[in-house]
């Protein structure tokens, strides 16, 4: 199926049946349906299978280093607040290698959408545990099964009072689309953790597993209630999906610019003013 946001002449490196295809389609559709201009949209990614996404969609991109998409995305957005900025990568990239940036980007609250493909396994390095792998998950490295507690990005983000905290399952496509749209409409940092199957390396958390072990947050869930959100975030059987928490506050760029948002490429300093300041020395 052709889409106007398809990048021309590409060689897609994902495995047949990979959950990433669904996320790519979802992102293209959401950008189009929200009428976000691709010439004004940038995807910053890290490294890993998920981080290949910007090579396949016709927006601006900065394919950066493993774990480092968030700091790049934060200052990119600050240098030109008119851009739509997306930081995208996998669970190992964003929660493992980039874990420290995850914490501090939430604290800064840049107006970006943070998309994390979460398949609970390392794909590109061929099948090792990821921070979100469940206990007991056996791999070629974790030969006795994972013994560490799985990382819960939702409860961590909530503990940091992230402005928009959500989780979806790509197997529940229309629900995922509704949530991702809300993430783009949210002013401030928005986390969208997306469950997706890895058809090659994760034979436990399969498409079927995600479908039968997740359920949409109930209609009476109050997403402005932080403690209720935290309670839901800690549930794991089944795992709730949807928007756990949403609350807007001033963004990183707001704090810098105030009302006068101007791309930094058009900013130059007044050297006469600099001269006057120098005279004080």
């Amino acid at each position: 199926m052709k889409h106007p946001l398809d990048r021309a002449d590409i060689d897609n490196a994902w495995c047949p049946g990979c959950g990433n295809f669904g996320i790519l389609k979802l992102l293209k559709e959401v950008l189009t349906e929200l009428e976000l201009d691709p010439k004004n949209t940038v995807i910053v990614s890290g490294i890993g299978q998920a981080s290949k996404t910007p090579y396949y969609i016709d927006t601006h991109m900065f394919s950066s280093l493993h774990g480092r998409a968030l700091p790049v995305a934060t200052t990119l957005k600050a240098s030109n607040p008119n851009l739509n900025v997306i930081a995208e990568g996998g669970d190992g990239d964003m929660y493992g290698e980039g874990g420290n940036h995850f914490i501090h980007t939430i604290r800064r609250n840049p107006n970006i959408v943070h998309i994390v493909h979460n398949n609970m396994v390392y794909g590109l390095t061929k099948g090792q545990a990821s921070p979100t792998s469940q206990k007991g998950f056996e791999t070629g490295v974790q030969v006795k099964g994972v013994t560490s507690e799985p990382f819960n990005p939702i409860s961590v983000a909530l503990a940091l009072k992230a402005g928009f905290v959500s989780r979806v399952n790509i197997g529940n496509y229309e629900h995922a689309k509704t949530v991702l749209k809300q993430a783009f409409l949210h002013k401030g940092y928005a986390l969208v953790d997306i469950f997706q199957p890895c058809v090659v390396f994760n034979k436990v958390n399969t498409r079927k597993w995600f479908n039968s072990n997740t359920h949409e947050l109930e209609n009476d869930h109050n997403s402005s209630n932080l403690s209720m959100a935290m309670q839901k975030a800690l549930e794991d059987n089944p795992i709730p999906i949807g928007i756990f928490y949403q609350s807007e506050s001033s963004t990183f760029e707001d704090n810098f610019y105030g009302d006068e948002k101007k791309a930094l490429f058009s900013v130059s300093h007044d050297f006469n003013k600099l001269q006057v300041l120098f005279e004080e020395y």
Binding site: V44, S64, P71, V72, A73, T75, N80, L264, F265
Partner: peptide, 14 residues
């Protein structure tokens, strides 16, 4: 983060 932020800045025109 510091240097990756520098790169994000220049990439955006800062």
């Amino acid at each position: 983060a510091a240097l990756n932020m520098v790169l994000g800045g220049w990439f955006g025109g800062a």
